[in-house]
């Protein structure tokens, strides 16, 4: 969401955001973020294919796209659960359990994805 009023200020803000991000985030988080970005790009690609080319096997598109979206939110959930900043919010979810939840959620998700591919 780029501001319209002051482009130099905006680029400044984005720059400082990027700097703050790379300084404050641990490597593990960055690794997760890289995966998130990949999932997002993959989802965008599928969506564009659906809009521009064809949505013919609609269930296949939905399966692929939902696998991206689902995996994205599960990974984002994992990210917020293992984020040390959120420690007092997730009192009952240890990082190990977060990963187990993530794995289980992904298995269930992909079970349905596989079933839906057709």
């Amino acid at each position: 969401m780029a501001p319209k009023s002051s482009p130099p200020a905006a680029s400044n803000v984005v720059h400082s955001l990027w700097k703050a991000y790379s300084d404050q985030t641990s490597d593990r988080m960055k690794f997760i973020d890289a995966f998130l970005v990949f999932l997002m790009l993959s989802g965008v690609a599928q969506f564009l294919y659906c809009v521009l080319v064809t949505d013919y096997p609609f269930n296949a598109f939905l399966a692929g796209f939902s696998s991206n979206v689902g995996q994205f939110v599960l990974t984002a959930s994992l990210r917020s659960q293992v984020n040390p900043e959120n420690k007092n919010e997730f009192k009952e979810v240890s990082p190990e359990r977060a990963f187990a939840d993530f794995a289980l959620g992904s298995i269930v998700l992909h079970f349905f994805v596989y079933n839906f591919l057709g």
Binding site: N59, L62, A63, S66, V69, G70, V73, L74, A76, S77, S80, Q81, N83, N86, E89, F90, G105, V108, L109, F112, V113, N115, F116
Partner: peptide, 22 residues
């Protein structure tokens, strides 16, 4: 809004919606 809400809703919706279409 909390991260807990995000985790709970996102995981429910993403899996539940796909599942309901089966």
């Amino acid at each position: 809004f909390s991260s807990r809400l995000y985790v709970a809703y996102s995981s429910w919706y993403a899996i539940g919606t796909l599942a309901s279409m089966q």
